[in-house]
Write a protein that binds this DNA or RNA. Sequence first.
DNA 1: CTGTTAGCGCCTTCAG
DNA 2: CTGAAGGCGCTAACAG
Lengths: 341, 341
Amino acid sequence: MATNIQKLNLREIAKRARVSTATVSRAINHIPTVNPFLARRVWKVVKESGYYPNTLARALVSGQSRILGLIVSELINPFFAELVQEFESLAAQHGYEVLLRSTAGNPGSMETGIRRMIERRVDGVAVLSFGVGEQLIKDLPLHCVPVVVFESVLHIPGIGTVRIDYQNGIRQAVQHLAALRHNHIAFVAGPDQLGDTLIRKKAFQDAMAEIGSEARQDLIVPGEHSVESGMKVLLDLWCLRPKPTAVLCADDLAAMGVLAQAYELGINVPNDLSVVGFNDIRAAQFTAPPLTTVRVSTSDLALQAFQMLADRDMTSIPSENAAFVVKTDLILRRSTGLQSG
Amino acid sequence: MATNIQKLNLREIAKRARVSTATVSRAINHIPTVNPFLARRVWKVVKESGYYPNTLARALVSGQSRILGLIVSELINPFFAELVQEFESLAAQHGYEVLLRSTAGNPGSMETGIRRMIERRVDGVAVLSFGVGEQLIKDLPLHCVPVVVFESVLHIPGIGTVRIDYQNGIRQAVQHLAALRHNHIAFVAGPDQLGDTLIRKKAFQDAMAEIGSEARQDLIVPGEHSVESGMKVLLDLWCLRPKPTAVLCADDLAAMGVLAQAYELGINVPNDLSVVGFNDIRAAQFTAPPLTTVRVSTSDLALQAFQMLADRDMTSIPSENAAFVVKTDLILRRSTGLQSG
DNA sequence: CTGTTAGCGCCTTCAG
DNA sequence: CTGAAGGCGCTAACAG
C-alpha cells in the first residue's frame, strides 16, 4: 500500500514500473501490442499502489466523457423513478455514468441543468420530462451532443424524440369504458401549461368522437399528476350532474387519488364508479381494487432513449432526427366494471 | 452565431476579444480585479459565440469536480426516490452535479460504481443503501473523497454515517400496538443478508422485552422491501396459530403488500388486523385504509448526508468520522386499532 | 491590471 | 514494441 495515494498519476506508476508513461497508458487500456511481460509489471504496480486513472484527464484528451445526462420532471412519480432506474441500468451495463437532474418544482432548473451538462461535455442528454419548452435544448446539437426528448412540439434537427402513443392508449381506454356502457366519462388531464396535456386532451376528444359520443366539456378537468390532485378532482367531479360513471386519468397517481377519495366518500369502485389510470406503475397492481390502466413500458422508453444517445456513429450525429413511438397496452384489472345505472 | 461551435475554447474567445486567455478566464470567473471594460468585451464575445467553458479541464486543474456520487439500493422504492430527489435538489442549489448509481439487483454494481466515482474524482460519495458491505468503500477516504453511509457496521476513519433511529422508531410502533392490547405482533424484517435487518430485529425484540411480552419467534419473518413480499408474507402469517393480531413491517412497501393481501383475503383492517409500516412514504397516506407508520424524514436524511460531503473544510477530510442520527415519529392513521379478539 | 508561461493527468502521433 | 514530446482546455503563478 502506498503513501500519498492522492497524487498518484501515470508518471508515478511509470517510474515505479520502470517504463514510460506511454507504456503504462497502453497497458492500462489493454492495447494488445504491448509486451505481456511489461504489461504484467505495470498491472502489478497499479494494484499494489491503489492507482485509479483520472477520468477527467482521459475525457479531456479523448473528447468523450462517457457521461449521459438525464433530466426528468420529478422522481417522486414512480413512473419517472422506474424510467430513471431502467436508464441507469442500461448506462451502467454499457460503461456510462448518469448525471441526474430533476426539475421538480424549480423553474429554470432544466435550463441550468442543460447548461451544466454542455459544460461537462456529456456524451448525450435525455430529457424525459413532460412539457419540454426550453430554448437551450437547441444548443445541444450545436455542441454535437445528441438529445432525446419526450414528445415535444419542437422539430429541431439533431433532436430525436421518443413519443408515447397517447392517441392509441387513450383510445383503448375509452373503448373499454364504452363497451362497459359508460356514457359519462370524465377525463383528468395534466397541468394545462404542459405540452403533453394538449395532446392527451385531443386524443380523448377524438376517441370519444369515434364512438359517437361527444365529450362533455365539464368532465374534462386539469390535474397535477399527483395523488392529492386526483383526490381533489373527484370531489369536484362528484358535484356535477349528471355524475360521471367513469373517470379516465392521464396518470396513475391521479387515478390512485381518485380511488382514495372514493374510499373516503364511500363510493364503491367499480360498482358506482369505474376508474382507469395511465402508465401502469407498479403500485397500480396493489391498489384496492387493483387499477385498470394503460401500460407504457418504461423499459422500452428507456431503451429507445438510451440507444439514440449511446454508441452512435459519431459522424451521423447532427443530421437526422429520429423518432420512436412507444406502444401502449390496456391492462384490465378490477377498477372498471359495467355501468350499474 | 458561430460556425464550428464545437471547438470553441478559451484561446479562441481570447483571440476574438483581443485579450489574453488569462483575462478571459478571469472575466468568466468574475474575478473583481479585471477591467470592467475588458470584462464586458469578453462577455459579449462569449454570449455571441455560444461558448461554454469546459468543466473537465477546469476540474482537472482545480482538483475539484463539483460532482457528488450518490449510490442507492433501488429507485423503485419510493423511499429512495424521495431521498434522491431531496439530495439532488440540495446539490443543484449548491452548484453540484449528481452522479447516480442504483445497485438494484446487480451484485457488484456498488463495487464498480465506487470505482468509477473515484476515477471521476467526485468530491464526495453518499452510499444511501441498505446493507453496505463493500470493501472498496475504504478506498474512498484514502483518495480524500469524503463518504457518507447508512448505518454500516464498518467503523472506518474518514467515513461518516447517517443512521436512522430504528431503536426508537420500532419502539414507538410496538408501544402503540401494545396500548391497543395486541399481544401477537408479527414483525416483517428485511432480507436476512442486509446489515440493517439485524439491527431492526434486535430493536423489535428489545421493544417487546421492554413491555414484558416476549417476541414469538415464528412471528418474526424476513421480507423483501417490496409490495409483492408483503403480500406473500401475510399469506404465510395467516396460517399460524394463534394468528397475529398486528403486523409491523420494516418498510412501507411491505406494509402496503400486507394491506393488499388483506383486501384479497377479506380481512378487515384494522378490525381483524392492525398494520404498521416504516418510512412514511407519500403513498402511505393514500392506502385504504391510510397507513399508520413510522416516519423517517427523507429531507433530514438527505440534508445530513449532503452537509457531510459538500463545502467541507478541505483540511479536515480524512480525520474525524462524524455520525448523525435521524429521528423517527409515529404517524397515526387508520390501519391500526384496538384488538377485537 | 494584463499577458506570458507552466503545468493539471492523460493519450497519441512519431521516431527509434 | 517502446519512449519522447506535444497538446486537450483551463487556471494560477509570476512578470511586466
